[in-house]
Design a binder for these strands. Structure first.
Lengths: 155, 155
DNA sequence: ACAAATAATTGACTTTATCAACGGTTAATG
DNA sequence: CATTAACCGTTGATAAAGTCAATTATTTGT
């Protein structure tokens, strides 16, 4: 008891000194929210969002991913990939090619227009990235990426 | 030119060697997706999700946040906070107290039951966190947190 | 005292996410 | 082989999350 707290002191340093400020999961969520928002607004000028950008990226560098691989990689339900691919295919940025090795599967390939658009979008993406990294000492950039890779791909 | 790629070699190392594998925004998104999923399933046993956990956490350590502060901190629309708070309040885990200093605002405070539940949930959260960090050398844990803080709070 | 700004809330609406079911194809089994 | 089981993409139904404008109660500035 002794609830002697004054009423104001929600005050100064604010919430980030609370337990959550040290919660990795929360930090990840918030960092992601900021990054995603920035990326989406920047990519909008190319008619893309982070999601469609990712799909285009993979199609564009010739990895020939199947939709299922994409779903797993992007952590999406396969049905969401369908919609994503539909959108990009209608805009003739990518193409579904039925995998000759397994005719159930579609392999995604970027058209020339797709590769061109990606090249442009990639610049925007890079700018956003640099913006986000503005507060991080450049020396640490690579280490941060490395650490994030460990979280993103724990194998 | 020279498109000599065989058809199979989507093969081995897979997609993570593509451009996206170095894309910070993507890595953040994927790491977050994994963390969020793990957190949600672990917190489910307490009837919480990452979101409600965060709200409870802030209410529980006496920061007396207002809903607006919460919205900004968690990067949510104020209307989403309403729903979140409704849920926790119905379960009598937190309470809205109209801020005496500004009677428009509600200040969130955890009940004793709320603090108890949070204490338990926090352990689950910690386990999840350690699980996620399993691939990261312990020496680097604090540095990772520090770097994420920079991304999450660029000020 | 009045106008403008702000906190929470509601409601309409769009976007994302989750899940089960289906047709076509391949892999595994007997 | 001939089935059976498993798998890929797709669809459709449903639920959850996110976005936005409008409203009420209160506060702030003038």
């Amino acid at each position: 008891m002794s609830p002697a707290e004054k009423t104001r002191p929600t005050g100064r340093g604010s919430l980030r000194d609370s337990v959550l400020g040290e919660d990795l999961i929360f930090l990840l969520a918030r960092a992601n929210a900021l990054a995603l928002a920035a990326a989406n607004t920047a990519l909008a000028q190319h008619g893309l969002k982070a999601r469609s950008y990712s799909v285009l990226a993979l199609a564009a560098d010739g990895v020939r991913p199947t939709q299922r691989e994409l779903a797993e990689f992007l952590r999406l339900d396969p049905s969401q990939v369908v919609a994503l691919v539909d959108g990009l295919e209608e805009r003739q940025l990518i193409e579904r090619q039925t995998d000759p090795a397994d005719r159930r599967a579609n392999v995604l390939v970027a058209t020339e227009a797709g590769r061109d658009l990606f090249a442009q979008a990639q610049e925007s993406a890079r700018d956003v990235e640099l913006g986000l990294l503005a507060t991080v000492p450049p020396k640490e950039h690579e280490r941060l990426a490395e650490l994030l890779r460990l979280l993103a791909f724990p194998d």
